[in-house]
């Protein structure tokens, strides 16, 4: 395992986990605040995510302490579970219990609880589990080598995030051509990862690297365009709260950058 600026790949992954769990919580808060925390379970992402954040910070400070890694492992697993249960909640409150039910599926998918969003917490939790396992000295999670496991998490997350983004961009009628961006390199990189894992070829490695790098930049383009998107709402960011609540997801595009960075870390430092 190689190091970069004094940190090995696992510690970099740990740092990325901490940043991304924060981003996930910001978007979850905006969405749940918008619906008024009508269901008590809407607080769970902050309990679970907050625990992961604390554990990741502690593991960053004390990467060799058994208790810190144990905490990261447990909170990470908790995050995975919270995400899965959350998706169930989103499905029930967002579709099943709404008027029209499945007859209005597309409408509910676009306008109510984003169906795939809770899995972002699962993905971050999976990274935390992976980091904790690695830092405790194990080279594999569930029998899968760390590098392969990390790349799989990244690929699946990018594909899911692209799907969710496409759904919401469809709701926005793709009113700007850049709204097709999540369908480009994130999807391609998700598709190229299995190619790399199966063939381990030089071209596959080069392709995945370039695609991850492009996805990293596209995430920042998304961040900028979403910021601009708030400003295309009535009154712009001058009336920040309603437009942030109703406008594009504030930090969601940054997850593309974050997971692309995690992918690059896995490629070159694990």
């Amino acid at each position: 395992m190689s190091t970069f600026l004094g940190w090995n790949g696992l510690r970099w992954l740990n740092a990325l986990t901490a940043i991304m769990v924060l981003l996930v919580m910001v978007d979850a808060f905006i969405g749940h605040y918008r619906s008024g925390f009508a269901v008590r379970a809407q607080y769970t992402p902050f309990l679970s995510g907050g625990a992961i954040l604390i554990a990741a910070v502690l593991a960053g400070i004390a990467p060799h302490e058994g208790w810190a890694l144990q905490l990261l492992l447990v909170t990470g697993a908790g995050g995975v579970l919270t995400g899965i249960v959350g998706a169930g909640y989103h499905h029930y409150y967002g579709i099943t219990s709404k008027p029209g039910g499945y007859g209005w599926l597309l409408h509910h998918l676009m306008h109510h609880a984003p169906p795939l969003a809770p899995f972002a917490l699962s993905a971050v939790g999976a990274l935390a589990v992976l980091v904790a396992t690695g830092l405790r000295g194990s080279g594999a999670v569930l029998g899968v080598p760390l590098r392969t496991a990390a790349l799989c998490v990244v690929a699946v997350t990018l594909a899911g995030a692209a799907l969710q983004a496409t759904l919401l961009h469809y709701r926005g009628a793709f009113n700007n051509p850049l709204m097709y961006a999540p369908l480009t390199t994130p999807v391609l990189s998700a598709a190229a990862v299995p190619w790399l894992i199966l063939t381990r070829g030089r071209w596959a490695l080069l392709s995945v690297t370039v695609l991850f790098e492009a996805t990293f930049l596209i995430g920042f383009v998304g961040l900028g365009m979403h910021l601009r998107g708030f400003d295309r709402m009535m009154g712009g960011l001058r009336v920040a709260l309603p437009n942030v609540l109703d406008g594009p997801a504030m930090t969601a595009p940054a997850l593309f950058s974050g997971f692309a960075a995690a992918g690059l870390t896995a490629l070159y430092l694990l």
Partner: peptide, 11 residues
Amino acid sequence: SAPHRGRSPCV
């Protein structure tokens, strides 16, 4: 329901 040119979506 989405921005169009200089016009904002419905509030």
